[in-house]
Each structure stands twice: as structure tokens, then as C-alpha cells.
């Protein structure tokens, strides 16, 4: 099980300047809504997720839909862990 708080921890680590990460809900939008979420931050988040959850993403599994909301990112992690 991947807790919402665990996903928010990863986001907070890569988006230090972004306000209120830990107040975010599953529906909170990511791409396009957080100015700090640039390409390096996205790569940082992916790498942190891989290290923390012991999974490895195939780069082709990663697209804008994964980073649409906190919930879609969490679902991708869950799906990867179940495979």
C-alpha cells in the first residue's frame, strides 16, 4: 500500500519552494499547476520514487497523465509495485 503522505513526502523533497505540498489531496493538480515542477524536478521525483519504493520505471511508462494529479502519480506507483 502506498500512503498519500509517502507520495507527498517525495514531492516535498523535490519541490522545496512549492507551498503547501503536505496539504494536498489526491485530486490536487501537479503539471501546469506548480511552477516549480520543471523537467529536473520531474526527474528528481521519478528517481526518488524508484529509490524509496524499490521500483524501476520504464521511461516510456512516464507521460503527462502520470503527473496530472497527486492521485494519478500515486496510482502509477501502486500499479508498478503490483507488477
Amino acid at each position: 500500500m502506498v500512503e498519500l503522505e509517502q507520495v507527498l513526502d517525495v514531492l516535498a523533497e523535490s519541490l522545496d519552494g512549492a507551498a503547501q505540498i503536505h496539504q494536498m489531496s489526491e485530486e490536487a493538480p501537479l503539471l501546469g499547476a506548480i511552477p516549480e515542477l520543471d523537467s529536473m524536478a520531474i526527474v528528481g521525483i521519478i528517481t526518488s520514487i524508484e529509490e524509496r519504493f524499490g521500483i524501476v520505471f520504464d521511461d516510456d511508462e512516464l507521460d503527462a497523465e502520470v503527473f496530472e494529479t497527486v492521485g494519478t502519480l500515486r496510482n502509477q506507483i501502486v500499479a508498478k509495485m503490483e507488477n
Partner: peptide, 9 residues
Amino acid sequence: RMKIASAMA
């Protein structure tokens, strides 16, 4: 990955 993420962002 940054190249891919850049297109994504």
C-alpha cells in the same frame, strides 16, 4: 529522462 520530462512539462 529530462528530455522526456521537458516535453511532458
